[in-house]
Design a protein around this nucleic acid. Structure first.
Lengths: 252, 252
DNA sequence: CTTGCGCTTGACGCAGCGTCAACCTCTACC
DNA sequence: GGTAGAGGTTGACGCTGCGTCAAGCGCAAG
């Protein structure tokens, strides 16, 4: 028994356009065509469509569905790889959600965000002593004044950026990215740019921090586990350091 | 002080292509242009870019970023709406992840999925008594035989589709979709198609279930809270019923 | 004068279809 | 026999956010 394109579409709960698309990309050719190019689908085609929709509902991209159905790829392998993709997606989403929620809270409640909470996200003035010792009390005071001047919204936004950044670092380290690769260097650039957005940091007046400041900071990330924790432990922090050092050498 | 496009790109950790794109869509016009159309960015433009990247990192689409920055939209409102989008996305992702994991487990372990677990997802033969009473012992037996014949992979896949379906129903009900709208009817079509994939259900031999079977089932979803729970409580089940009844009237 | 850098403006490509537009074919009705 | 309507066909553009050529221009160094 053969069915027309509309019959199949209704039966499967998809649009006829979708079926034509699947024909076009070779995913589901109709079992035959009649007068004037009309497409006809038999039971075999409909069963194939069912499997397609099944895998599509799992979020598998169409080209990979084709590979699985044509047995060029093992289904379990494809699903395992897909699982990793989904998990990364989830990580990204969770971080975004948390950032948006924090930003929103700070924005609507307008609360000034008290000292502890502020320091919580503020990983450079969090360690007042180190900062003053290394770069002088002046830098700390400037930085502190800048922070207060940001206001609630600015502070929340700033913290959100830091969270995104460390999340991106952790994800890249986990993926096994090369620190000197374009991806790694782009992250380093973002990190340095983020540093530059803190007027208290050395060199913020000339637009970018001095090389040795960045390198020193990078080493500190690894040496001090309080920093390392922000970047996924020693492993992650080492990755951050390697990327930052390479970036500093080339750009600063 | 003005900077060239590459300077800004490095400073912000984005590509120059991105900056040109932002110019093209009017999101971030350069503060000035020099000989041969060269773009120059001053401090104001760079600050605007910082805000853009901040909101972009939160996942806000560029057109909404533009609205916020140009103060046509309240920032808090935009973020609240965005939060809903993100939450829905998360729901979708979680369901997909669970489905993929289940499918994968059944696929690799190849275990037959025992009776209880099977019944867990199998919401029509789950209530053996009702089924036999309403549609005859024959229907149940056929259905049961079909289920056994599916094998581990088929069973897992089938359950995954059911989960996706009920998730989609719940999401649509929550969004306040009209049951008779195209969206609602497409869901109903998927649901009926899913029903038809069970050979034991009445009418599966002629390709689609009879109208009164679908309507009866729909009413049962609302009346029986064990079913209703699958579709988001009485609210959700009512939505499913309305959509299914409308669909049955028109298509069956 | 050539080379090369940094920049410019197009324009295509990506995923998965939705959405016209223009045209064909068969049936039903007047 | 003409015409309207249902259901089909093949293009082709639109959406999101840029990556990635391609072709060309202005300016400085060799």
């Amino acid at each position: 028994m053969t069915s027309s394109i509309q019959d199949v579409a209704r039966l499967a709960g998809v649009s006829s356009r979708t079926l034509r698309h699947y024909d076009q990309i070779g995913l589901l050719p109709p079992s035959g065509t009649g007068h004037g190019g009309l497409r006809y689908y038999d039971d075999g085609a409909i069963r194939r469509l069912q499997r397609i929709l099944l895998l599509r509902d799992l979020g598998l991209p169409l080209d990979q569905i084709a590979q699985v159905l044509d047995e060029q790829t093992d289904e379990a392998d494809a699903l395992r790889r897909h699982l990793n993709v989904l998990r990364r997606e989830r990580g990204r989403l969770e971080r975004q959600l948390a950032s948006v929620e924090r930003t929103l809270t700070a924005l609507t409640e307008g609360r000034p965000i008290m000292a502890e909470e502020m320091l919580d996200g503020f990983d450079h003035t969090q360690y007042k002593d180190e900062v003053t010792e290394r770069w002088g009390a002046d830098a700390y005071a400037t930085s502190d004044a800048w922070w207060r001047g940001l206001g609630a919204e600015g502070q929340a936004a700033w913290k959100a950026r830091l969270d995104d950044l460390s999340g991106a670092w952790a994800a890249a380290a986990e993926r096994g990215v090369d620190p000197t690769s374009d991806d790694g260097q782009a992250l380093a650039a973002r990190h340095v740019a983020w540093l530059g957005s803190v007027p208290g940091t050395p060199g913020s007046d000339v637009g970018r921090p001095p090389k040795e400041y960045v390198v020193g900071l990078a080493e500190m990330y690894v040496a001090d586990e309080r920093f390392a924790a922000n970047y996924g432990g020693t492993q992650g922090a080492s990755f951050v350091r390697d990327a930052l050092v390479a970036y500093a050498e080339r750009e600063l």
